[in-house]
Design a protein around this nucleic acid. Structure first.
Lengths: 118, 118
DNA sequence: CTTTCATATGAATGGTTGTTCATGTGTTTA
DNA sequence: TAAACACATGAACAACCATTCATATGAAAG
C-alpha cells in the first residue's frame, strides 16, 4: 500500500501506477487536436461570434456591427473558427452567411457556461 | 462618426436581427469567464494532466514523470488548473496529491474528444 | 538544528496570437 | 467597361504565455 508509494528523488516507486495511467492516455495526436479545439474556444471574440451564430446565421458585417469590431478582425476570427470546423458558410451574391457547423457547438458552450456558474 | 457603420447596405438591412441576437448574448463577464476556462483547456500539457487525473489522483512528481517534463513546469500548470477550479489537492506530508475537482471535467473533455473524432 | 525531499514561485525568454492597416479577390450594379 | 460593395488576407506589432533556471517554502528524517 503506502510503503510502495514512497518517493525517492522524485519518481522511483510509482512506476506501476504511472504506467497504468499512461496506458489510458489518448494518443499524442488526439491530445493535440483537443487542445487546439479548446484554444480556438479560448478567446472572447470567438466565443461571442459562436453565441451569436447559435441563434441564427449571420453575415460578416452584421457580426462586426453586433460586436462593435472591424470587419477585418471578424473575418480573421471566422477563418480560425472555420478551420476548427466550428462554423460553416454559404455564399449569396456578395454576402457570406456563417452559421455553427452543428448542434455540438452549443453543447460545448453550455458545458462551459455550466462550469463557470456554480 | 461610427467606424462600425462603414458597410451601408448590409448594416442597414439587418438592424432588427442584430439587436435581437445581441439581446440574447451572455453578459460580458460570462463571456470572459467562459473564454478563460477554454483558454486553460487549450494547452497540451494541461489536457494531459487532466486526462491523467480523471483516472486517479496523482502527486506532482508522478505527473512530471508520466509526461516526461520538469517538476517546475507541471507545478506551474497545476497552479493554472487550480485557479480555474478544474483540479483540487490534498496534502499528505511532503507530498501533494492532485485530482479533478468534479466529474464535470471529464464531461467537458469527452465533448472535445467527440468533436475531433468525426 | 541540519539535511533531504516534494513542491511552489519569481524572473527571464523564446514563441505564439489577436488586432490593425493596407491591399487583394470576387460579385453586383451603373 | 468601371465603380461600389462584401469579404479575405498578408505583414507588422504589441500583448500574452509556457517553459527553463534558480531559488524559496515547508515537512519529515537524521
Amino acid at each position: 500500500m503506502s510503503e510502495f508509494n514512497e518517493h525517492k528523488q522524485c519518481g522511483g516507486k510509482n512506476i506501476e501506477k504511472v504506467a497504468q495511467i499512461g496506458a489510458m492516455m489518448p494518443v499524442e495526436e488526439e491530445i493535440y487536436d483537443i487542445a487546439e479545439l479548446f484554444k480556438v474556444l479560448g478567446d472572447q471574440t470567438r466565443v461571442k461570434i459562436l453565441f451569436s451564430l447559435i441563434r441564427d446565421e449571420m453575415c460578416v458585417c452584421d457580426i462586426a456591427e453586433l460586436l462593435e469590431m472591424t470587419q477585418s478582425a471578424i473575418s480573421h476570427q471566422l477563418r480560425v473558427l472555420k478551420q476548427a470546423r466550428l462554423v460553416k458558410y454559404r455564399r449569396e451574391g456578395k454576402t457570406v452567411y456563417y452559421s455553427v457547423s452543428d448542434e455540438h457547438v452549443a453543447t460545448i458552450l453550455s458545458m462551459g457556461m455550466e462550469h463557470i456558474t456554480e
